[in-house]
Computed example of a mutant assay.
Amino acid sequence: MIVDTADACDLMIDVDLEGVRSTTLNAVNVGDSLNVVMDPAGLSAICSTLDGGVLGALSAFPGIAQLMSCLRRGERYLVSVTAKGAGHCHVVGGRLTR
């Protein structure tokens, strides 16, 4: 993850998802867009399909604490699936423009 020092919420996300849900993974394709949101408990950042299906979590990478802080402040992020395989999904994206 790359952070623009001029704006701590201008994050670039480039990461493998954790805890990928196979049912949702089977329904997405490379190039599909995913929302980055807080999980319902507010404890982690997750990627969900545009219709709300949870694909996996963003965790254990530099910048996760800042990402979660920005999500709590109302910033919105969108990523695209760049690679997928059995139990694996890689995403790249960043903050939606204001």
Rank of each mutant, 00 (worst) to 15 (best):
F61G: 01
C70Y: 10
V36I: 08
A60T: 14
R76N: 09
L11Y: 01
S80T: 13
C70I: 15
V36L: 10
D39R: 05
I13Q: 06
R76V: 15
D32A: 05
M12Q: 12
R76L: 14
A83M: 01
G53L: 15
G87W: 03
L34D: 09
T49Q: 04
V15Y: 03
S59R: 02
A41L: 10
G52Q: 12
G74M: 02
S44C: 08
G42I: 11
N29H: 09
L67K: 01
A41S: 15
I64M: 14
L78P: 00
A57C: 09
F61D: 08
T49G: 07
L17T: 08
T23C: 05
Y77K: 09
L34V: 15
I46K: 00
C70A: 15
N35Q: 07
G31Q: 04
N29D: 14
R73V: 09
A57P: 04
E18H: 01
V15S: 04
F61E: 12
V79E: 10
E18A: 10
V79Y: 07
T23A: 15
M38I: 02
L17W: 03
E18C: 03
T82I: 15
R72A: 13
C89T: 04
T49D: 08
A57F: 04
K84H: 01
L71H: 10
D14Q: 06
G63A: 04
A41H: 09
V92A: 06
L11A: 06
G53N: 12
A83K: 00
E75D: 13
R72E: 14
D14R: 11
E18F: 05
G74E: 05
D14A: 09
V36A: 07
G53W: 13
V15A: 05
K84G: 04
L17P: 07
A45T: 00
E18K: 11
N26S: 15
G63S: 00
H90W: 08
G31D: 08
M12V: 15
C89F: 06
A27G: 07
V30K: 01
V79P: 11
A60L: 01
N35L: 15
N35D: 14
H88F: 10
S69E: 15
D14L: 12
M12I: 13
G87D: 02
R76A: 14
A60N: 04
H90M: 04
G63W: 03
A45N: 02
V15T: 06
L11F: 03
S59H: 05
H88Q: 06
A27H: 06
D51R: 11
Q66I: 02
V20Q: 01
V37P: 06
M12N: 12
G85V: 00
D39W: 02
I64E: 14
S80I: 00
R73F: 08
N29Y: 10
R72I: 00
T82P: 05
I13R: 15
S80R: 13
S69G: 15
L58A: 07
L78Y: 12
S80F: 06
V28W: 03
D16T: 14
Q66E: 08
L25K: 13
A65F: 01
A86C: 04
K84P: 09
D39F: 01
V20L: 06
E75H: 13
N26V: 12
L11R: 13
